[in-house]
Amino acid sequence: MLIQSAVFYFFAIILVSSAVAMITVRNPVHAALFLVLAFFTSGALWIMLEAEFLGITLVLVYVGAVMVLFLFVVMMLDINIAKMRAGFAKYLPVGLIVGAVMAAEMVIILSKSNFEHAQVKPKPPDYSNTQELGELLFTEYVYPFEIAGVILLVAIIAAITLTMRKRTVSKHQKPHQQIHADKTKRVRLVDIEK
């Protein structure tokens, strides 16, 4: 138990400090990497709550895929930090209000009366929450699950259509034509007269 709480505080300190660092550092690439660290440590905390499926999926999806693309974009951008910081005083009141509302909501949701029923019994070691989650998703919540899937599919198709501009200047490879190329069409042998 002692080790467990030590590990918890270790990850919790990293999580909170990397989340703070993410919004305070000047360099956007550093900020993205701090966000990666925050995701990773919160994945570790979820695993400590015996939610290994959610914890590993968080690492797999957010750290392994989403943040890679984020970094990809952030590295390519030439962000002017001074310009980004200029409106700080202007946005401060709005930011404070939004922050206060969010904090108040969190306090209400996480209050003791809402979390009393969350006192679950410890599960046996061979308990697989992956299986449990899968069974719930495919029986009780199958329609919400499938609707969410369709919405995501629509979003993917929309995103692809938005970026599909016909560019007349760029040349495209046509592999099915390329493989039919033979030397009689490409090479002309010429006798050079002496």
């Binding site: 690492v59 392994g64 590295m75």
Partner: peptide, 25 residues
């Protein structure tokens, strides 16, 4: 010997890309 071993492996192999990206930047 963990239940979600295969997922763990997939997560770990997907982290390797950070070394390359961070080095490049």
């Amino acid at each position: 010997d963990i239940n979600a071993g295969l997922l763990y492996l997939l997560a770990m192999t997907s982290l390797g890309v950070y070394g390359v990206i961070v080095a490049g930047w």
